[in-house]
């Protein structure tokens, strides 16, 4: 790791002001992505501003139709939160199969979506549930937030404060774990909104990061059941291929994980 200066911010405003004062600052949340990258000397921020201890970025709130998870809430806290389990159990399940215990104790929802790894789990949940990303400046819909591999709509120095999930009628998430990293080799989140809209998002599959899967959405809209997906054709082109899975395999997984997610959603 290169030399850097560590700051612990106690409020979002302080974090923003610290950011403005440094030449090349990075926000730090769980550090599960940023720190390994710094250790490998692939990133060399002049200043690291820790958001992890900011009170206003911690916790979960549930209203009648919205589950709000603050940005610096860890996966473990999300996984064990009673409101999460009650309102959107699929999110609790998603966090329970994310990474390993060490990652779940430290990693945060805000860090995950800010990073937008093409195989991360949470982006699929946000996209399928039609969530809204709240920042210190504005509200951004999930559809507008994810902009391809490791790219988001966030501006320089903008801080995610929370994610607001509309409580769905039904939702499910199933994931084939990458055998080494445990990211999603492919994961599919399916949701049916209270107004009957069906949204399906796949992660780990596309070369462009998290994606909606219109063909499966259409099939499920017509018939919310695993078998409705049997005849859907997912083309392999444009999908990721690496030593752990060919594009054809991932195309298959998009279908199979979607079917299992529907079964889990009930």
């Amino acid at each position: 790791m290169y030399q850097t200066t560590y700051h612990r911010a106690s409020s979002v405003d302080e974090a923003v002001s610290l950011f403005g004062k440094s030449s090349e600052a990075k926000f730090l949340a769980g550090g599960q992505t940023l720190l390994p990258v710094m250790k490998q000397r692939l990133a060399s921020p002049s200043d690291v501003i820790d958001l992890g201890k900011i009170k206003e970025l911690q916790g979960v709130e549930l209203s009648a139709d919205t589950l709000t998870i603050k940005a610096a809430t860890t996966y473990y806290d999300i996984m064990t939160n009673a409101d999460v389990k009650k309102a959107i159990p699929a999110i609790a399940h998603l966090t329970s199969v994310l990474g390993d215990p060490a990652v779940r104790y430290r990693g945060t929802i805000g860090g995950s979506i800010a990073n937008n790894d093409p195989a991360a789990d949470f982006p699929a949940a946000l996209l399928a549930l039609g969530a809204t990303v709240k920042t210190n400046k504005r509200l951004i819909s999930a559809d507008d937030f994810f902009k391809g591999l490791f790219t988001t709509a966030l501006e320089d120095g903008e801080i995610i404060t929370a994610v607001a999930f509309p409580v769905p009628a039904k939702a499910g998430y199933e994931k084939m774990r990458h055998p080494a990293s445990r990211f999603a080799l492919t994961g599919v989140f399916v949701a049916q909104t209270k107004s009957g809209e069906v949204r399906v998002a796949a992660t780990g599959a596309s070369q462009n990061g998290v994606m909606r899967v219109p063909a499966i959405e259409a099939a499920l809209k017509a018939n919310w059941s695993p078998s409705a997906i049997d005849s859907v054709n997912i083309p392999a082109n444009g999908l990721l291929a690496d030593i752990h899975g060919t594009a054809e395999y991932r195309a298959n997984l998009v279908k199979v994980m979607a079917q299992r997610a529907v079964a889990a959603a009930g």
Binding site: M176, P179, L185, H244, G245, T246, E248, Y249
Partner: peptide, 8 residues
């Protein structure tokens, strides 16, 4: 025998 290889 990775899942991908077995599936293929």
């Amino acid at each position: 025998a990775t899942p991908d290889r077995v599936w293929r």
